[in-house]
Amino acid sequence: MMNKILVVCVGNICRSPMAEYALRSRLDGIAIASAGLDALEGYAADPDAIRVSAEHGLDITPHRARRVNQALVNEAELILTMEVTHMRELMRRYPTSHGKVFRLGEAEDFDVPDPYRKPIERFHDSFGLIVRGVDVWTSRIKALA
């Protein structure tokens, strides 16, 4: 059984918190966290990320951004990134992450584009892709249990 999943993007205020909370809503008993490659510690989720998540029944208001670190990487059994570039950077910075880092959109070969400072439609688009990726990973994880 998988115990810890880490979701990673750049700032940890849009995509990774939305994915973290979407995974949490589907996977009971698994610790799910998120972090950013270049996150500004302590920042709240983006207001548009909060709004779009709320429209889908997810309250991400408690979220606070944090930066990826070696401890988070070591603890995670699975690390999901939003883009292939995040995956490569994570493995470059943390060689111990090799073999457990995948893209959220791995199965369907897509990246989740960053909606930060873009119109709310981009947040809806990104959220839709996040849910697609979360659905695939949720069924894979449950099949392993």
Rank of each mutant, 00 (worst) to 15 (best):
G99M: 06
V8K: 11
T61G: 14
R24T: 07
P119A: 12
S97E: 10
A44K: 03
V84W: 12
V134Y: 02
A22K: 02
L58P: 00
R15T: 02
T61R: 08
R26Y: 08
P95C: 04
D48S: 15
M91H: 11
A143W: 12
G29I: 10
S126F: 02
A54H: 11
I5Q: 03
R122P: 01
F127R: 00
P113H: 08
R117V: 05
P115T: 06
G133C: 11
H124K: 10
Y43H: 14
G105S: 07
V8I: 10
D111L: 09
F102W: 15
Y43L: 13
E121F: 03
G105D: 04
T85N: 13
L58G: 09
V68M: 08
L6G: 00
G29N: 11
E75H: 13
K142W: 07
A45F: 07
A49G: 09
S97K: 07
L37I: 02
I30H: 02
D28P: 07
R88Q: 13
E55T: 02
E108Q: 14
E41D: 13
R122C: 15
M18K: 05
I141D: 04
H124Q: 12
I130L: 11
D114V: 00
D111S: 09
P17Y: 05
A22M: 07
H98W: 14
C14I: 03
A71E: 14
F110D: 00
F127P: 00
F102G: 03
R93N: 07
R122G: 10
L129W: 06
D114I: 04
A45C: 12
K4H: 15
P47A: 15
I120S: 14
V8F: 14
G36T: 00
K118N: 08
V73D: 05
L6W: 11
R51F: 12
R88N: 11
R15A: 04
L104Y: 04
H86T: 00
P95K: 05
V101Q: 08
P115M: 12
G36H: 05
A22R: 00
E83F: 09
F127Q: 01
D111I: 01
D38Y: 14
V8C: 04
P47F: 01
R132M: 12
C14R: 01
H86S: 04
R15W: 10
L23Q: 07
A65T: 00
A54D: 13
V52E: 01
F110C: 06
